[in-house]
Design a protein around this nucleic acid. Structure first.
Lengths: 235, 235
DNA sequence: TAATCGTCGATTGTCGACAGTTTAATCTTG
DNA sequence: CAAGATTAAACTGTCGACAATCGACGATTA
């Protein structure tokens, strides 16, 4: 009567999924700054370089477009999104809105396991603070915030966070330095975890609002004094 | 020859843009219920029916996937997303979060012109309430809420609203009836506009929270008692 | 009889090609 | 020499084709 093969726990081997791979590679290239804002993304070029045809590249590009990393000018091609200061503002504004909500939801789902996960992530942040690796530090910071969205338990919330995060990473990569002492940043997250455990909605909201708002102010300041090389392409 | 045509603000007529057209047609088909949740979307079939090749159809499908209307099972194709009750909850939850925020922002940008626009939309809703056209009534309702996001002035906020709205429309189409008397709904929006003009953040938030929450409760109830024909396909 | 294996049609993922358009490079001409 | 016209190259949008893969159905076997 057993109709299914006895489920031995095998890890599903990665289905080639060309489009996804191309999308990831392009995303990395943008974040790492190999593709600067305003740069043209030539389909044939990418395709040749990756050893695939243009079809998967186009589909991947459409993905990144919807995600806000590329813009498509019909008949002219895809370009790396140029983030103006106002875009940064929009993203941070939305981020506050979303993460405050996530925080309140997460505090309701807070279990010992979740608490430990967050706690450990803060430890990692402290360890990383010793090393001089901006990219890594930023990544660990995002991981903490992402965990909150995971714990909140809404797939859409999480995806939204990921979208916003990749837009921000794009800019952060350009700034090239942190906006504060890494240890201090890690400490700030401890305070955050504390109010999450306490579970009072208003306090959580206020705290996250302030926490992200601080980053916003700093990043905003840095972006506005960026060399114009990042803003100087076609509209 | 061409001396850069003087850019009079004409709405650039759709540059054939096959992908966009296909996407719109598919979206409509899903909302109108011609493509039921769980249904398989056969690329070749759609392509033949629309008289185009599979490439644009694939790209359009990827778009709708990112937008949450389709899901893609690798090597098996695209399927119309099956929205479970928990999905509805996620969407409404996010919608409250987003629209409360939009409301507060909008109230800060409130001008006489904006006020009139909203006012007129409420009038339209009252007019539509007389006619017996659910689809139309729902559409006018969404338009009002969309206006708030427009007035808020954030492109990302607006796009997010559109995404959430199309996910909801998909379900609302299935329910096939309104959750309240249309005139009563229109009236509720008058109250909303009132607090928006007053401009007190807490009150706006509370009001919108309640307003959308009411719809959530009603829609949730209806969804949970839907015929299982909408939940009965492959995972 | 019921479960498994093998085969066949249908469908996806990917590719190379072609036409039309945009971009650049070159050539005119005042 | 500069500004506009002209030509050439490069690129996008779309198509049709082909191999790989999936699901269904019937054959096989204990």
């Amino acid at each position: 009567m057993r109709l299914m093969s006895p489920p031995v726990g095998l890890t599903a081997l990665a289905d080639t999924d060309l489009v996804g791979q191309v999308a990831r590679i392009l995303t990395q290239a943008i974040i790492k700054g190999q593709l600067l804002p305003g740069a043209k993304v030539v389909e044939a070029g990418i395709a040749r370089e990756l050893g695939v045809s243009r079809a998967p590249v186009r589909e991947a590009a459409r993905l990144l477009e919807q995600q806000g990393l590329l813009v498509s000018h019909p008949r002219r091609g895809f370009f790396v999104r140029k983030l103006e200061a106002t875009d940064i503002d929009e993203v941070y504004d939305l981020r506050i809105c979303v993460e405050c909500h996530a925080g309140v939801l997460a505090s309701k789902n807070m279990t010992p396991a979740n608490r430990d996960m967050l706690r450990r992530q803060i430890d990692v942040m402290h360890e990383t603070a010793a090393i001089d690796d901006h990219a890594r530090q930023i990544e660990e910071d995002y991981k903490f915030h992402r965990m909150i969205c995971e714990i909140a338990g809404s797939k859409r919330l999480l995806r939204l966070f990921d979208d916003l995060a990749s837009e921000l990473r794009m800019t952060i990569g350009l700034i090239g330095r942190l906006y504060d002492d890494p240890h201090r940043i890690a400490q700030t997250h401890e305070a955050l975890l504390e109010v999450l455990e306490q579970g009072h909605a208003d306090i959580i909201t206020a705290r996250i609002d302030y926490h992200i708002g601080a980053a916003w102010r700093e990043v905003g300041k840095l972006v506005r004094e960026l060399p114009s090389s990042t803003n100087g392409a076609a509209t």
